[in-house]
């Protein structure tokens, strides 16, 4: 370890020790020093992750590796109780359910819940070099089931329903040109703007679809339509980008509030 990094380490360690003691002394609660330690730990990890913005460093590496291990175990614990104990055990048998203190779910076909167990064990066969090919069966089951599921459902939601909603009238409250010009105004709910908007939607959808056309060269009028399509796509992406930017900034404000309020208690 280099001298500078030793110094940095010593500084950080003493600062956090100080924070622990101070937080412990002024904390109210049954176990003030535990609370003080936990808040300091949380602050340390927060800063460790933020230090990544400067450059990769040992503190970030520590926080990152800890996070990976802890979260993997967390997912496993949760998965065990919600899926194995919550979903599988209650179907297996009433004796096993009673042991796990869950309600046995009656069913005439519960015997079939042996199949996912078998599939699960086949999946674990991957670890054996000889029987590894067996693990393709459960994968085939999962992929097949969900492909079938997606096939019809997306055809309905993203295809048929979209045709339905693209069919909009281009002329609204049309009473001839005379009426149109005499009542013309630029208000958002006015006839002109509404008609223009519907036209943009219609043209936008058509040109957007043309942009995604693969089997025809994008030249001539087709190419121009495709160009309009990508313009509209880009405008949309910009709008969505801007919208998210504003949302994310509030998150940062939240994290800074934690550091200054809960840990350092500078602001209240």
């Amino acid at each position: 370890m280099k001298k500078t990094s030793m110094v940095v380490f010593a500084t950080i360690a003493s600062l956090f020790l100080l924070s622990w003691i101070v937080k412990g002394m002024f904390s109210e609660g049954s176990s003030p020093y535990l609370d003080g330690f936990l808040v300091t730990l949380a602050a340390f990890l927060t800063l460790a992750i933020m230090s990544f913005l400067y450059k990769d460093n040992p503190y970030y590496k520590f926080a990152e590796h800890l996070f990976v291990g802890v979260s993997a175990a967390y997912a496993m614990c949760l998965g065990f109780w919600s899926t194995i104990v919550g979903n599988l055990i209650p179907r297996l048998s009433s004796t096993v359910s009673d042991f796990f203190q869950v309600n046995y779910i009656e069913g005439d076909y519960n015997i079939f819940f042996v199949i996912p167990i078998i599939f699960g064990i086949l999946l674990l066969m991957r670890l054996s070099p000889k029987a590894g090919w067996l693990s393709r069966w459960p994968l085939a089951f999962i992929v097949g089931t969900t492909a079938g599921l997606n096939f019809v459902r997306y055809l309905r939601s993203d295809f048929i329903n979209q045709i339905n909603s693209t069919i909009i009238p281009l002329l609204i409250d049309w009473n001839g040109f005379g009426d149109f010009f005499s009542n013309m105004n630029f208000s958002a709910t006015g006839q002109l703007v509404m008609m223009f908007s519907n036209l943009v939607i219609f043209v936008g959808v058509v040109c957007g679809i043309i942009y995604f056309y693969f089997s025809k060269e994008h030249t001539g009028w087709f190419g121009r339509a495709s160009k309009v399509g990508i313009w509209i796509l880009m405008i949309t992406f910009g709008a969505s980008f801007g919208y998210t930017v504003m949302g994310r900034i509030s998150l940062l404000v939240g994290r800074i509030t934690f550091l200054f309020k809960d840990w350092l208690e500078i602001i209240s």
Binding site: Y154, V200, I201, G204, C207, G208, I209, I235, T236, S240
Partner: peptide, 22 residues
């Protein structure tokens, strides 16, 4: 307006992609 149009065009494309791949 443009957002709605573009979203719909993308959704139709994605939908067809998903359907065809499935």
């Amino acid at each position: 307006v443009p957002n709605l149009a573009a979203q719909r065009a993308i959704v139709i494309g994605i939908g067809l992609g998903i359907v065809a791949t499935s």
